[in-house]
C-alpha cells in the first residue's frame, strides 16, 4: 500500500540535521505499524513524508503505486485518502465540533449537506462524543479534542490513518479514551501508521514495531519479539529508558 524507497531528508534550519537517512519500508494494507524512537530520531519526519507534509530530497514514496513526490501528482487527491491526527489536535477553533468534522467533507468530498450531517453524526457517535456536536473545541478536554480530530480524519473515508504522537499532549487520565478509539479502528482493519510510545497499544494491536534512531530504521519486528528480545544495543538502551 505504501512503498517507501530509500528516502533522505536533511533540515538546514536552525542547523544541519540529517532527519532521514536511506529509509526504506513497505506498509501493507490492513497493517498496523508503530514507530518508536528517541526525540529527534526522525520518526515524525518519516510519518510526515508519507503524505508530503515534508518532502524528501531523495528517494520515492509510492502510495497505491502513485509517486507522491512527482510534481505531476495531484497531492490533494492522495492526501484525501490519508487521514492524519496530530499531537496538538489542531482542531479549527473557529468552527464547532460538527463544523470541524464536516468542512473537508464539503470542500474536498463535495458531499451534499444531508449526507455530510449523517456521516458526522455517525462518526461522533463512534468516537463517543455525539453530545458535544455543537460545542466549540476550546470547551473540550484534550482527550475529547483528540477524539474529534480522529473523527475529522475518518470523515474522509481514508484508506490509511497516520497518527503523530496522538497521546503525548494529553493528561494521563485521558490517554485511555483516545487509545480505545484507535484500538477499535485497528481491529476494524484500518491501515495505520502510529508514532507513539504507548507500549500497551503496540502490544495489543500492532503488527509491526519500527525503532528509529538518528534518521535510520535500526530494528523492526513483531511487538512480542521487539519488546522481549531486541537485538540491537541501541534498542535495548532505549527500551530500558522508557520502561
Amino acid at each position: 500500500m505504501i512503498d517507501v524507497i530509500s528516502i533522505y531528508k536533511t533540515f538546514y534550519v536552525p542547523h544541519e540535521v540529517k532527519a532521514l537517512v536511506d529509509v526504506s519500508n513497505k506498509i501493507e494494507a490492513g497493517e498496523v505499524v508503530v514507530v518508536i524512537g528517541p526525540s529527534g530520531s526522525g520518526k515524525s519526519t518519516f510519518l510526515r513524508c508519507l503524505n508530503r507534509l515534508e518532502t524528501a530530497e531523495r528517494g520515492q514514496i509510492l502510495v497505491d503505486g502513485v509517486d507522491i513526490f512527482d510534481p505531476k501528482t495531484n497531492i490533494n487527491t492522495v492526501r484525501a485518502e490519508m487521514g492524519m491526527v496530530f499531537q496538538s489536535f489542531n482542531l479549527y477553533p473557529h468552527l464547532t465540533v460538527q463544523g470541524n468534522v464536516g468542512l473537508a467533507q464539503k470542500l474536498v468530498r463535495k458531499r451534499p449537506k444531508k449526507e455530510r450531517e449523517e456521516k458526522t453524526r455517525m462518526l461522533l457517535e463512534k468516537v463517543g462524543i455525539s453530545a458535544k456536536a455543537k460545542a466549540w473545541p476550546s470547551n473540550l478536554s484534550g482527550g475529547q479534542q483528540q477524539r474529534v480530530a480522529i473523527a475529522r480524519a475518518l470523515a474522509m473515508d481514508p484508506k490509511i490513518m497516520l497518527f503523530d504522537e496522538p497521546t503525548s499532549a494529553l493528561d494521563p487520565e485521558m490517554i485511555g479514551e483516545v487509545l480505545e478509539v484507535m484500538k477499535t479502528l485497528a481491529k476494524e482493519g484500518m491501515t495505520m501508521v502510529c508514532v507513539t510510545h504507548e507500549m500497551g497499544f503496540a502490544r495489543e494491536v500492532a503488527d509491526r514495531v519500527i525503532f528509529m534512531d538518528e534518521g535510520m530504521i535500526v530494528e523492526e519486528g513483531t511487538p512480542e519479539k521487539f519488546y522481549k528480545n531486541p537485538t540491537h544495543d541501541r534498542t535495548k538502551l532505549f527500551l530500558k529508558q522508557i520502561l
Binding site: 496530530f86 496538538s88 479549527y92 473537508a104 470542500l107 474536498v108 475529522r152
Partner: peptide, 23 residues
C-alpha cells in the same frame, strides 16, 4: 495562525486556497 492549522487542513486534501479562505 499556528502552522498546525494549515497542516490539518492540507492533510485532509484541501487546496491552498480552500485552506486560506476557510481556515
Amino acid at each position: 495562525i499556528h502552522p498546525g492549522q494549515v497542516e490539518a487542513a492540507r492533510s485532509s486534501g484541501m487546496t491552498y486556497f480552500q485552506c486560506m479562505f476557510h481556515i
